[in-house]
Design a binder for these strands. Structure first.
Length: 424
RNA sequence: GGAGAGGUGGCUGAGUGGUCGAAAGCGGCGGUCUUGAAAACCGUUGAGGGUUUGUAGCCCUCCCAGGGUUCGAAUCCCUGCCUCUCCGCCA
């Protein structure tokens, strides 16, 4: 959520900045609602104050044995007025809140103009697109031929957009997870974390998936209103929901491997082949909870932590900054890491690293105690994939294939592969 | 799944209809003392929101959450959630 004070005091400027991402703020509606809120809130609080003072007088009178009947008569009609005022205020505030919950974050000044992913700006490249002296296969042909990937059986078990993996490819998939966790905990100072894979609606509201994007989520049947997590970002970031963190405990850096579940509603024709877009995939997620003045630097370091995975695996990639039209609802600024996929002859997203500034923190009431003011203030949250495991597997298979259809395992993964260096 | 107990400020814990945002202790912060520290002593110490030029003042809300009773609720009633103990079951 953006700061409601900005809506009150700087509405035109906020509306202007949101246009960068193609979001039109209904200013007339907000001005009217805000005026009503102020009027009703001031009135209602005055009534509450009056009730309080009168009730105290009644208490005192009763204690000293006076007749309280006239005092009671004087407050008689106060109750109804007060109830009406409170109800009206609650209604206005929930209406206002519903609107604010649906307003996206204000884009950071660095975010380039643009409407779609075509307008994202490439910042740098690492490595060169892998060249072959034969026609490279895509990961589906490789995986199926190697006997390690079975999409038909998965669709029998469940449906489309799932996979069954087996043998050395399943092991490689697991090896990637171990490698990433080890790298981020040993080299980058993150704390390994294990979390629930189902969360409640409060958590999803906290990170911004609800109320607007429920169609992207899998909701569980049953008495509890639980959802499967679409990313570890949700449970991990919500660790600090309703917490005031000591300044000494900042920054907090979490690394967490989880499966992720996404309904992929609205992407029916997209990436129907292979592992790229599944309803269930594994991800190693990096989350940092930082002081506001440190979030920009944190985004840079977190991004480079994710880049390290690609570099150590020897996978060519580029970094783009998302334009206003493509940056996600909750993010102020996002870098995407895109890995080179020979099977598609293009760069594809493998990690998305974002600074949410105080947007999620405000929804979560996640704060730290600023020693300067000694007051609780909102933290900033930063997160990114380090990396999406399924897509990393795709990239490895496609970039490390040879003419015979074998896949050579990069050296950093050898310790995790139990002696296997080639999958054939 | 069955039976019981309970959820109060950073922590322990008192409070069963009014003067309670809440005793007391611990912890934290500031000070006195001290060469310095400890001890002792004194003071201070929750969060959210409104109004406002205001980190001033005034006001509102919050004692798990949501409803209700009442002039007045931490305290009474209902519902939900969570925790603990015992029994059963179980990876």
């Amino acid at each position: 959520m953006i700061d409601p004070q900005l809506i009150r005091n700087d509405l035109d400027n906020v509306a202007q900045q949101l246009l960068k991402r193609g979001f039109k703020l209904d200013r007339e509606q907000l001005i009217a609602l805000e005026a009503a809120r102020k009027r009703v809130q001031v009135e209602t609080q005055a009534l509450q104050s009056e009730r309080n003072t009168r009730s105290k007088l009644i208490g005192k009178a009763k204690a000293s044995g006076e007749d309280i009947a006239p005092l009671l008569a004087a407050v008689a009609e106060l109750g109804d007025k007060l109830k009406a005022g409170e109800a009206q205020l609650a209604e206005i505030q929930s209406e206002l809140n519903a609107i604010l919950q649906g307003v996206p974050n204000i884009p950071h000044a660095d975010v380039p103009e643009g409407e779609s992913e075509d307008d994202n700006v490439e910042l740098r490249r690492w490595g060169k697109p892998t060249s072959f002296d034969f026609e490279p296969k895509d990961h589906v042909d490789l995986g199926v031929a190697l006997g390690g990937m079975d999409f038909e059986t998965a669709s029998k078990l469940t449906g489309s957009r799932f996979t069954v993996m087996s043998g050395p490819i399943a092991r490689l998939h697991r090896a990637l997870i171990q490698f990433m966790l080890d790298l981020h905990t040993r080299e980058h100072g993150y704390t390994e974390t294990y979390v629930p894979y189902m969360v409640n609606a409060d958590s999803l509201r906290g990170t911004g998936q609800l109320p607007k994007f429920s169609e992207d989520l899998f909701k569980l049947e049953g008495e509890q209103e639980y959802y499967l997590i679409p990313t570890a970002e949700v449970p991990v970031t919500n660790i600090v929901r309703d917490v005031i963190i000591d300044a000494d405990d900042m920054p907090r850096k979490f690394v967490c491997h989880t499966p992720c579940f996404r309904s992929e509603a609205g992407s029916y024709g997209k990436d129907t082949r292979g592992l790229i877009r599944q309803h269930q995939f594994e991800k190693v997620e990096l989350v940092q909870i930082v002081k506001p003045q440190e979030s920009n630097a944190a985004l840079e370091s977190l991004t480079s932590n994710a880049e390290q995975v690609l570099q150590q695996l020897g996978l060519p990639y580029r970094v783009v900054i998302l334009c206003g039209g493509d940056v996600g609802f909750s993010a102020a600024k996002t870098y995407d890491l895109e890995v080179w996929l020979p099977g598609q002859q293009q760069y594809r997203e493998i990690s998305s690293c974002s600074n949410f500034e105080s947007f999620q923190a405000r929804r979560m009431q996640a704060r730290w105690r600023n020693p300067g003011t000694n007051k609780p203030e909102l933290v900033h949250t930063v997160n990114g994939s380090g990396l999406a495991v399924g897509r990393t597997l795709v990239a490895l298979l496609e970039n490390y294939q040879d003419a015979a259809g074998r896949v050579h395992i990069p050296a950093v993964l050898h310790p995790y592969m139990g002696g296997v260096t080639v999958i054939e």
